[in-house]
Design a binder for these strands. Sequence first.
DNA 1: GCGACAG
DNA 2: ATCTTGTCGC
Length: 237
Amino acid sequence: MHVKQIHLFKLNKEEFVKIQHILQPKINLSPTIPLNSINTCAGVDLAYWEQNGEPYGVCSIIVIDADTKEVIEKVHSMGKISVPYVSGFLAFRELPLIIEAAKKLETEPDVFLFDGNGYLHYNHMGVATHAAFFLGKPTIGIAKTYLKIKGCDFEMPENEVGAYTDIIIDGEVYGRALRTRRDVKPIFLSCGNHIDLESSYQITMSLINQESRLPIPVRLADLETHVLRTFYQKNHG
DNA sequence: GCGACAG
DNA sequence: ATCTTGTCGC
């Protein structure tokens, strides 16, 4: 798959904010493709560990068939991590490996689901949104915990599958607290890019099974990163 | 000094 | 994210 190259990853916080401000107005929340033409969905996740006191990470991307839910392709990338985790700047830490892995894809997924926020972010520039500028495909943000913005809490959705409450800040919809399964904590859904919230919701709910509150491709990528981490730790590189 | 903090 | 034992429940 064709992925735009990057060239910007040893900057300071001010530079990161500048980049987010430049990209933010270019976010497009209109769907580029209709729901019924989505045939393949990719899940993206990373795992981390330390080796000789240095941080390493592995990124897994797993593509599944939207109908059968069968795995079509999986790729990964591994390497040293050079950017620390700072809330609000996750994309700068994770994008290098994400892009490296995406380049290896032979299939071109119709949509990417990320482990992290998209539009639900201080500058509407969570990792899912930011990644779309390199992937050029629709992206969706799936966070497991709530990122509080401007002191606004979320309203707990009803305990029913598919129940949700929108997260509205200063009159703008940032995302959605979504109960994907009963008796389980909600996830925090938001647009990444090139897609609207309702479509993101439909896609996400269509990818839920009994295994997890997370959509299947994200869950699979999560499991895969753990396997890969064990492998790379054992084989010291 | 204290609390907050996607992954 | 990661470090970690047991434990409750389908």
